[in-house]
Design a protein around this nucleic acid. Structure first.
Length: 190
DNA sequence: GATAAGATTAACT
DNA sequence: GTTAATCTTATCC
């Protein structure tokens, strides 16, 4: 297995398609939570909607690290959202995890989500962070190390991927950098 | 030093 | 459909 930093040293929209369908594994208190990434969005420093547009200052500095790191930011003061950095060192690029499909440890995720279950458990970026117990202390974490690991699989065939515009932004709204898996109930918005 | 806006969610009416 | 919750950065005094 090649290093993540090599595998994800790609243009953001290519890396986003590669991360779609990958599996993220989170260990906590002897339990293993595993989930498949079913919805992502790409962000880049050349993109007005990205946190990294202002340069490697403040919260987005992690996006300028080499690929395969975790960038966690606080959304609306309440929600923790998870990104995977891509591209090369010094390039402010990342892929936001918008939704995942639980594969293992769903009962633990349910506890983290205060009893909410069903497809509402992880069908949104803030929900993913909460279900997996990720907060800002994991900002900059290397995704080849415990307790949070990323496993890339073969890229999905194009006919399983839907490409569209991003959600919840007010700038660069026409940039089609949102990717999700067809016919998956955990995708936040179809 | 102060203020406005934001890659959102859940609980209301 | 509307609104409150709540904190960080950027942008202006």
């Amino acid at each position: 297995m090649k290093r993540l930093s090599e595998q994800l040293n790609l243009p953001v929209e290519i890396a986003a398609k590669k991360i779609l369908g990958a599996v993220i594994e989170r260990s906590v208190n002897g339990h293993v939570l595993r989930a498949r990434i079913v919805e992502v969005e790409a962000y880049h420093q050349s993109d007005a909607a990205s946190h990294s547009v202002t340069g490697p200052s403040g919260r987005a500095k992690t996006m300028f690290e080499s690929a395969g790191k975790l960038y966690v930011y606080l959304s609306y003061g309440i929600h923790f959202c998870c990104n995977i950095t891509v591209g090369k060192l010094g390039e402010g690029a990342g892929v936001l995890i918008r939704a995942v499909e639980p594969l293992a440890g769903e009962s633990i995720m349910m506890i983290n989500r205060r009893g909410i279950s069903g497809r509402n458990i992880t069908n949104g970026p803030g929900k993913v962070g909460q279900a997996l117990g990720i907060d800002r202390t994991f900002d900059g974490h290397d995704l080849e190390q415990a307790p949070i690991k990323l496993f890339l699989d073969d890229q999905l065939p194009d006919d399983e991927i839907v490409q569209s515009t991003r959600v919840g932004i007010s700038k660069a709204v026409d940039t089609p950098w949102r990717f999700y898996i067809k016919h998956n109930p955990y995708v936040s918005k179809l």
